[in-house]
Amino acid sequence: MHKSVKRGLITATAWAVLSTTAMAADTLTLAGLGGKVQEDLTATLFKPSAEKIGAELRTESHDGIAAVRVQVQSGAPGWDVAHLGAEDCAIGAAEGLFEPIDYSVVNGDGIPEGVRAKDWIATNTYSVVLAWRTDKYGDNPPKDWKDFWDVEKFPGRRALSVYPQEMMEIALLGDGVERDKVYPLDTKRSLAALEKIKPSVSVWWTSGAQSAQLLKDGEVDMEAIWGSRIAGVIADGAPVKFTYQDGVIGFGCVAILKGSKNVAAAQKLVANIVSPEIQARIPTMMGYYGPSNKKAFEAKQFSADVLTQSNASPENAAKQVTMQPTWWSENIQDVQEDFKNLIVQ
């Protein structure tokens, strides 16, 4: 190794050791799912929250609940807080991976009941929406999932996700179930509906990037896709539109890992993340994502444009179904297998 490089490394290591020692009590490590979403969440929610409590924030990434499980089972987790999809938070809570949220520190007002759990709390929303190619449907596009299921009136190639979450809800809506009657999911009916649409589903997508590409390249004519992914497709000039009508609102969440050495500081961090003030940063900073705290829309005035775009604005939220992570955590094992079985057949 080059001498100066070596010396540089030693210096850097020394610095790292010194700084961690000096600030050990105030350093919190948060691990999320990585990528652009985590960058945006860090800038919008996590960083400002850490600054507010005067803590140093380190972010790392994981690839799902299994990685969190490993950390907790090791007895000395390297992370204090994990950001996950809400179903995973619910699964982890059922496995006892998390410290309880201290609701004397965290103010959960404004956060929907189902996603304000004993061990975890929602931090943001996203929507799965119906999007279509305007060059295919022109002035008479599908309006909701019932249209998506109507292959006579709306011929064309469709795409759905390979994961059952949100797809099961969509199938019920497509089959004519009212939005407020979706839960608890009638899995039999849902699977039957999916069986009906299956011949028209040309792709079951595996990743967000793939779903965006499918629509952008015209590989499919309409699909269920994360709202956040639509932005890039439309920005690229693809003839694509979407509707929040009948969308499914899902949640991101945070939980404090059992065995964390910084539980008290972590509680304060979580409290800030879900506070209306910080949450109010989401509609402007993260297009197509929304705050989990409804009070965010009271904490700040937003332009009409922003409100139209945000999936969680009161007007848009009213058109959608809100996902229930707890239902999923209880049923995922069977549903996942049945759903997959249906696709593969």
């Binding site: 799902g64 499980r69 595996t206 990743s207 094992q333 996942q336």
Partner: peptide, 24 residues
């Protein structure tokens, strides 16, 4: 296979990954 199979080609490795995240 996950990407090019359009979700229809099921592989054991995917099933393992699913089970890791779905089963506690």
């Amino acid at each position: 296979p996950a990407l090019l199979g359009g979700g229809r080609v099921a592989m054991w490795a995917m099933q393992i990954a699913n089970n890791i995240s779905v089963y506690g």
